[in-house]
């Protein structure tokens, strides 16, 4: 893990993998009290940003000495999301995976996803857990409008669109779960560290 100072009050902790980010993020939340005040802890693809810290260089040196344990598979709250596999890209995704479309729900349903980080839009979680053989390219031409609640895949990630927006991910299904509601506590269903299981409606 490499600490990189960002301006006068932030610190970027760089790792080599999504798994290391997950472990480091969990440890930072556990030991938040030792950080001496931090406004934002923002995990991303290979980094965790600590924003609003008093002395980023000293904090970075301190965290670099931490022993960061791998997180237990059962760590983090579990959210079950009901999905209808009715996405317009379902057949294409199945073809890319070399399976029949009817097998996709069982494949996706068998994966233990975890929210690695949020971005793109409020409440849009990037879910990791897809084995490498199921990683997918983005669509060559993004859609101008993807409906809210679309379950989508791209690269190493799965995600659910919190509201209707343009998007280039492959759409395999739909959920009625409200993944983002600023009037609700918590506003985001998919906060970093949350574990997610997709269950087929009626299955």
């Amino acid at each position: 893990m490499r600490p990189l100072v960002v301006g006068t009050e932030a610190l970027l902790l760089e790792t080599d993998s999504a798994e290391e980010v997950a472990a480091l993020h969990a440890e930072l939340l556990r030991r938040r009290g030792e950080l001496g005040g931090v406004r934002d802890i923002v995990p991303a693809a290979r980094t965790v940003l600590l924003d609003g810290v008093a002395d980023p260089a000293a904090l970075g040196a301190r965290i670099a000495r931490w022993e960061v344990p791998a997180p237990a598979a059962s760590e983090g709250p579990l959210v079950r999301v009901a999905v209808r596999y009715d996405g317009p890209d379902l057949a294409e995704v199945a073809a890319l995976w070399g399976v029949g479309a009817q097998e996709v729900p069982a494949i996706v349903g068998g994966i233990a996803f975890r929210v690695a980080f949020c971005g793109f839009a409020p409440g849009f979680g990037y879910l990791t857990g897809l084995p490498a053989r199921f990683h997918l390219p983005r669509r060559a031409t993004p859609r101008t409008s993807v409906p809210a609640g679309s379950l989508a895949l791209a690269g190493e990630y799965a995600g659910v669109y919190p509201r209707s927006s343009p998007g280039g991910w492959q759409l395999i299904g739909t959920t009625d779960a409200v993944v983002w509601d600023p009037a609700r506590e918590p506003a985001a269903l998919f906060a970093p560290g949350v574990r997610v299981r997709f269950e087929e409606v009626g299955a």
């Binding site: 923002v42 995990p43 991303a44 693809a45 980094t47 940003l49 924003d51 980080f117």
Partner: peptide, 10 residues
Amino acid sequence: LPSEGMVLGA
């Protein structure tokens, strides 16, 4: 660059 956290003033 894999997506990473951005700060005000970056």
